[in-house]
Amino acid sequence: MNKHVLFIQGGGGKEDYAADANLVASLQEALGETYLVHYPFLPNESGLDFGRKKQIGKHISLHKGEIILVGHSLGASMLLKYLSEIKTRKKIAGVFLISTPFWSGDEDWKQGFKLHKNFADKLPKHIPVFLYHSKDDKEVPFDHLEIYAQHLPKATVRKITSGGHHLNNDLSMVARDTKSLSKS
Rank of each mutant, 00 (worst) to 15 (best):
I147V: 15
K117N: 14
K110S: 13
K125L: 06
N118Q: 13
L115R: 05
S46A: 13
H59Q: 12
H72K: 15
F96G: 01
T88G: 08
P40C: 05
H133F: 02
G164D: 07
K87Q: 14
E139H: 12
E146T: 14
G94H: 00
V140W: 05
D137A: 09
K122Q: 15
P153N: 09
K183V: 10
A19P: 01
R52I: 01
K183G: 02
K64W: 00
H116M: 06
Q150P: 00
N168T: 06
H38Q: 13
K90T: 14
H144M: 13
L62S: 13
M173V: 09
P153T: 11
K117L: 10
Y17C: 05
I92A: 08
K117P: 05
G51M: 04
M78E: 14
E15Y: 03
V95G: 00
S104R: 10
S99K: 05
N22K: 08
E146S: 15
F102N: 11
P43N: 13
Q55N: 11
S73F: 00
Q111K: 15
T178I: 15
Y35F: 15
Y35C: 02
K64D: 15
F113Q: 14
R176M: 08
G105D: 11
E139Q: 14
D136A: 10
H144L: 00
S84V: 06
V140F: 05
D49C: 07
N169Q: 08
A21V: 03
L23Y: 00
E85A: 08
N2F: 03
G75R: 01
D108I: 12
S46H: 01
Y17F: 15
S134E: 02
V157H: 06
S73H: 03
K53A: 09
D108W: 05
K53S: 10
E45R: 13
Q111T: 12
